[in-house]
């Protein structure tokens, strides 16, 4: 039996080098490209023949637009609509990535910390730059000093604020990565139980873990949705903090 962690192994499909950097096209990149193609296909067919009474696929696209715009409206407000394309892309990229990972024999690129961290760090940088450009550097630094606090307390509070600001990309990326990685490892482990117990007890022993596996697969699909949602909503919150510094 392969190790439960074997599913996360990266394999190079096309070897590519730019200078000293290894930019090979891996199975991870392949699944990323597949998710993008999948999203674009749905959007393309959803927006092809627009009708007042939408077809199924058109209403799917419309609902997803409404979903993201409501999320932005709730968490940022009207000025957040500028960032709708970004958050829409982010949400569906991660969602489809998670869901494609649920398919047998495929690969979950969201279960790699470097990928989620790169996305989260980019969001962190973007939010910081939005805040600086919108409010100026001084006001942005004032974000770390809560108002109405006695001066000596600032000595303690400013580092705390800075630490909690820097921890944002880490908590954002670790949450997605840990959930996906743990879920898929667990599925594989329980799957191993099905095989081993079933083989040693004339199939009877494998029934219980198999039932478990089915339930866990459902749970994992829910988690795939939830984590994409949480990722998008936290991005909204960070952009909200950047737009309305307080």
């Amino acid at each position: 039996m392969a190790s439960p962690l074997a599913q996360f192994e990266i394999s190079k499909l096309i070897q590519l080098n730019v200078g000293d950097f290894d930019v090979s096209f891996t199975n991870s990149s392949l699944v990323m490209v597949l998710s993008v193609v999948f999203i674009l296909t749905i959007l393309f067919f959803g927006l092809k023949n627009l009708k007042i009474v939408p077809s199924k696929i058109q209403s799917l696209v419309e609902l997803s637009y409404e979903f993201i715009s409501t999320m932005i409206g709730d968490n940022i407000g009207k000025e957040g609509l500028k960032y709708l394309p970004f958050i829409f892309t982010l949400f569906f990229f991660i969602l489809i990535g998670n869901l494609i990972g649920m398919m047998p024999l495929s690969f979950t690129w969201t279960s790699h910390i470097i990928v989620t961290f790169a996305i989260a760090f980019f969001i962190f940088l973007a939010a910081t730059f939005i805040a600086i450009f919108k409010h100026g550097l001084l006001k942005f630094l004032g974000f770390f000093a809560p108002s109405g606090v006695p001066k000596p307390m600032l000595l303690l509070l400013v580092p705390i604020e800075i630490i909690s600001y820097i921890s944002r990309p880490i908590s954002l990326s670790v949450r997605l990565f840990a959930n996906m990685m743990a879920g898929h490892t667990l599925l594989k482990v329980i799957g191993g139980f099905v095989f081993v117990l079933g083989a040693n007890s004339f199939i009877i022993g494998g029934v219980l873990p198999l039932a478990f596996l089915v339930a866990l697969t459902g749970l994992e699909i829910v988690i795939a949705f939830l984590q994409a949602y949480v990722f998008a909503i936290l991005t909204c919150l960070y952009i909200n903090d950047a737009i309305h510094l307080h």
């Binding site: 820097i166 921890s167 670790v174 949450r175 949602y229």
Partner: peptide, 18 residues
Amino acid sequence: IGSGLKISIDLIASIFVG
């Protein structure tokens, strides 16, 4: 739900950054 899920890892991430 988002806020609930947020809390757990925030604690660990802050300690890690510290």
